[in-house]
């Protein structure tokens, strides 16, 4: 088997906060190959954005990788100097963010922002880089690219801004696009357009996608595999369709049941009691146990590891009994 494009091994990230050291990521390992489309889901604070940022070296100043290794194209990036790391990462991955207006420079025209990488990193001349930028704008479905080249971000709508951000991310011809909730701030009709665009880019140019979101339905629409994150760890990983039809972690099971289905009215939503744990305190036992319908005393004392079962993986002592959950979940369905 060939080396994965990006390999993350036992990554741990800590964030310094006023309330102490927060263990935002606690041992995350996964591989990304070219052409993959991986969805990472979880609630706010579960560590999904931080995972992407840690890989790309975009962690805020108060956060740092405390242990673990990140290999890009087989090279441990901690052994590279800043310049070499940046060069290696930029040809491997691009990233788009939730808030496109904050990701774009407000005082530079969008065309110049897209042309920046072709011009200064790929060494194209001014007119060549302009042509590259126009081509990228067409590739991301911006009609009338010529006239929009000279506009500033504030003159564009939310959907167009996100397309510009995608064009910038693609300007270094990366093999993987990291997407950090890129459609959360968009209207559903515009979200559909951006998702379609990502699907097309993947189909036409084999672009790999790592998509972070809290919306399970979005993952269902555009990803092949899914990783469910809870309290800084992956608790379930597998193929999207298998995971959605037969979840093997109670958290995934509960999330799927709690998500309102636009196709069916149930009139009473399944809810998960309690709240996600505070990661500044040491985690004892399974972090989901206090909210779990299947938990017993053992779950409160030991934390399960992510183990493979058949085609997927689950971090739960009770995962073998997943086919009986539908009968026992009712006790957590209060308020």
């Amino acid at each position: 088997m060939s080396t994965p494009l990006i390999s993350v091994q036992d990554l741990n990230v800590e964030i310094k906060t006023n309330r102490g050291l927060l263990k935002a990521i606690r041992g995350v390992s996964f591989d990304i190959n070219g052409g993959d489309s991986i969805g990472i889901v979880g609630e706010s604070g579960s560590g999904k954005s931080i995972t992407l940022k840690a890989i790309l070296g975009l962690l805020p100043n108060n956060a740092h990788v405390s242990s673990g290794k990140i290999f890009v194209a087989g090279t441990d990036i901690s052994t590279l100097d800043k310049k070499a790391r940046r060069a290696l990462l930029s040809e491997t991955a691009g990233m788009i963010f939730q808030d496109a207006i904050a990701a774009l420079n407000p005082v530079i025209t969008v065309g110049d922002q897209i042309a920046e990488v072709p011009r200064f990193r790929l060494g194209q001349s001014k007119s060549e880089s302009r042509q590259t930028a126009l081509k990228l704008m067409e590739q991301v479905g911006i009609s009338d690219a010529e006239s929009r080249f000279g506009l500033y971000p504030h003159q564009l709508s939310g959907g167009l801004r996100q397309r510009i951000a995608i064009a910038i991310a693609l300007s270094g011809s990366p093999k993987i696009l990291f997407c950090d909730e890129p459609t959360t701030a968009l209207d559903v009709t515009i979200q559909a357009q951006v998702l379609r665009l990502l699907l097309e880019l993947r189909k036409n140019s084999g672009l790999g996608i790592v998509f972070v979101t809290h919306d399970l339905a979005v993952v269902n629409e555009i990803c092949d595999s899914i990783k469910v994150m809870y309290a800084g760890r992956f608790v379930e990983a597998g193929n999207v369709h298998t995971t959605f039809s037969t979840p093997t972690h109670p958290y995934t099971y509960s999330l799927l049941k709690a998500a309102p289905d636009p196709d069916e009215a149930v009139h009473r939503l399944f809810s998960i009691s309690g709240e996600a744990p505070n990661l500044t305190a040491p985690v004892v036992g399974c972090p989901f146990a206090p909210r779990c319908f299947a938990a017993d005393d053992h779950c409160l004392t030991a934390e399960p590891a992510l183990l493979s079962i058949a085609t997927s993986a689950s971090a739960c002592f009770k995962s073998s009994g997943h086919d009986t959950w539908a009968a026992s979940d009712s006790k957590s369905g209060v308020k």
């Binding site: 167009l160 559903v188 009709t189 559909a192 998702l195 269902n220 629409e221 039809s245 636009p262």
Partner: peptide
């Protein structure tokens, strides 16, 4: 119709549709 068809679905094999053009 556009709004409802744009909503991502949970059903297996769902393919999101989107109107070709469209922002005000």
């Amino acid at each position: 119709k556009l709004l409802l068809s744009s909503v991502p679905k949970m059903a297996s094999g769902s393919q999101i549709s989107s109107a070709p053009a469209g922002e005000l």
